[in-house]
Design a protein around this nucleic acid. Structure first.
Lengths: 132, 132
DNA sequence: ACATAATATGCCTTGACACGTATATGCTCG
DNA sequence: CGAGCATATACGTGTCAAGGCATATTATGT
C-alpha cells in the first residue's frame, strides 16, 4: 500500500472519502452510513490516514476524521498529462462516458483529431529485417 | 478488475498509459521502453483494453495501441467532488460550508487545527449519556 | 474503581492478481 | 508450404490485501 492509486482503488475507501467530502465524520457515523463493520472502517481509515488522505482529531471518546487534499491533488496532477485528450475538443464523447462501446471511427475526412495514423493493412511500416 | 481505479492502481499500467499519452506504440516498443516482458505487456494491455483505456489497430504483425479518454475522464469526474478542497478561488465558499459542520479546517496561517474541539455534534442516533 | 461506549489492533482465512515460463495463434514473405 | 517474427494465452506460483471475529485500548460518567 504505497501509492495513492492503490489507496483509492478500494471502493469502501472511496466511499469514505466521498462521505468526508461533505463534512467530517466520526467512525461510528461512517460505519452506519456505509453499512460497514467498525473494524473495517477503522482499518480503512488507517490506510487513508497513513497515506495522508485524512486526519483526525479527538472528540471525547470518538475521533473525527476529515479530508486532506494533498494526495487527491497528486492524482489530479497525474491526470493532467491526459487532459489534452478531452479538454480541447471532445464532441460527443464528453457527454456520455457510460457508452464505452464505440461503433467504428474509421471514416475518412472526419474524426482524426487525436488519432495519429490508424492504418489497417498497408505497408508504410518499414518491413522488419530478419535478424539472426 | 471491474473499476477504472483498480486498473490504474498498477504502476506498470500507469506507465503504459503515460507512454501512450505521447504517441501510439506497438507492444514491442512498450516492452523495450518499460523493460517489461512481452507477455507482461500483453496482459496489461488486455486489462487496459477491456476497461476501455486503450484501443488497438492492426499493422502487419504488430498491434498499435493508443489511448482512449473515457475511463480517465471518469477518474477526473470522481475527483471533481474534491476540487473545492484545494482550488483557491473557492476557498470562501469552502469556509462557509465548513462552518455548518466543521469547527476547524486546516488552511495555512489560519485556524487552530489541532485544537480539541469540544463536542457539539448533532446526534442522529440514540446516544447513551451526554456528558454535561 | 467499575461499567460501558468508541475506536484500534491482532490473527486467520480466502481470494485476487501480478509475474515468469512455456506454448499457441497469426501474419508475412521466400 | 515452411520459416520466422510479433503478439496473445495458459498454467503454476507467490504475495498481499480485505473481511470477519475476538480482544485490547482509551475515554467517560457514577
Amino acid at each position: 500500500m504505497e501509492s495513492v492509486f492503490e489507496v483509492i482503488a478500494e471502493p469502501n475507501r472511496r466511499a469514505i472519502l466521498s462521505l468526508l467530502a461533505s463534512s467530517q465524520q466520526s467512525v461510528g457515523e461512517i460505519e452506519r452510513q456505509l453499512h460497514m463493520t467498525q473494524p473495517g472502517v477503522s482499518k480503512h481509515l488507517r490506510v487513508l490516514r497513513e497515506a495522508g488522505f485524512v486526519e483526525s482529531t479527538v472528540d471525547a471518546q470518538r475521533r473525527l476524521y476529515r479530508l486532506r487534499p494533498e494526495p487527491l491533488q497528486e492524482v489530479d496532477m497525474w491526470l493532467a498529462q491526459f487532459r489534452r485528450f478531452w479538454s480541447a475538443h471532445l464532441d460527443a464523447l464528453e457527454r456520455h462516458l457510460d457508452r464505452m462501446t464505440h461503433p467504428s471511427m474509421g471514416q475518412p475526412g472526419g474524426v482524426d483529431k487525436l488519432t495519429l495514423t490508424k492504418r489497417k493493412t498497408s505497408r508504410k511500416t518499414p518491413r522488419p529485417k530478419p535478424r539472426t
